[in-house]
Design a protein around this nucleic acid. Structure first.
Lengths: 183, 183
DNA sequence: TACCGACGCCTAATGACCCTAGGCAAATGA
DNA sequence: TCATTTGCCTAGGGTCATTAGGCGTCGGTA
């Protein structure tokens, strides 16, 4: 049948997006290929390994998406593009996104974090502040996306507007970092 | 032995805080009480039910913590107290906090959300904006806490400072909502 | 061409865990 | 006192993760 670790990982990632990360089981993936559970253990160490592979795959795709999104932009433009790409990926690939959030052992792909740092360079933040700024940005984006994914915004009020404003709020903070946020 | 749904739930919640929500299994809780798995089904419908009960318990405790924290405060003071109480609970009770985030079916305890609305009243936001503001606040707090819990901030740089600044950033956004965030 | 080993999938088996059905004994209330 | 409820148990079925070991196929290699 010609299975490979990559093929298995990709199928598992798709499954995760469809039924949620919790629905990704060795059995389910095996069923998808029409093979027995045990057969997958030739290609993947086990469920843990499989999840980590999904996370790694997702992190790569994610970075590949974010990079072009901010390329050639700066300041607010870059921030908005970054944020929209971020949320876009999370919505299009909820399972992959969830996999990325899992505690990272061998913190492989900090490419995303690097990208974030780069994008914030336009705001002129020196190193002690830059880390705080990155954390603020990641917190806001991840928090919003995570709450949205979990149905945390039942209020029917337009989520798009809330999103734009949340991003604008981060922009505001970044612009006034010096004066307003250095207690 | 005198088990009750409440006792079971409380033990499960404690277990969740110790070993993570994923470690909460009917078997583990049964073991904790020295009874057979099947015995728990007299008090709890099943694993799903148990998790929802943990979530409900947590939501109640959480609201009971947040209420007093903001009582008698307003504006930035209230915000900081609210945020610190929020993060404090999440850190002290990671399993309970995780349970709270699960997709809520019968959205029981929106007491927390109500509290948030009340606390933001001091910033004088009218209703279309209030919802966006609440979402921004929840996103930032949840995002930060969630990333922190998952070890997302490996950078050894002081997380406390980052936290204070994130909260300050939200404060800044709330204060300048009108001028800066209504595109 | 006949042999060899890697590869890819299989069967078999163990152990955790979720859950249902039905029993039994002690406490409870009429 | 007797019937009911309450609280835990035994039995048993199903899904999963994981390991151990087997067996056919294929690309070389002698």
């Amino acid at each position: 049948m010609g299975l490979t670790a990559d093929l298995v990982t990709r199928a598992a990632a798709d499954l995760a997006d469809e039924v949620g990360l919790a629905g990704v089981t060795v059995s389910a993936v095996a069923r998808h290929f029409g093979v027995k559970d045990a057969s997958l253990y030739s290609h993947v160490r086990g469920l843990r390994d499989l999840r980590q592979r999904i996370a790694l795959l997702a992190a790569t795709e994610f970075a590949d998406l974010l990079g072009p999104a901010v390329a050639g932009r700066a300041g607010r433009d870059a921030l908005v593009a970054f944020a929209d790409a971020y949320r876009g990926y999370a919505r299009a690939h909820p399972g992959r996104y969830a996999a990325m959030q899992e505690p990272v052992e061998a913190a492989g792909s900090h490419r995303g974090v690097d990208l974030t740092y780069g994008m914030l360079r336009g705001y002129g933040l020196a190193e002690p502040d830059a880390t705080d700024a990155v954390r603020l940005l990641r917190s806001t984006l991840h928090g919003f996306v995570d709450l949205e994914r979990r149905g945390g915004f039942n209020d029917p009020r337009d989520v798009e507007v809330s999103w734009r404003r949340a991003v604008a709020a981060v922009h505001l903070a970044l612009v006034h970092w010096r004066e307003a946020l250095s207690e």
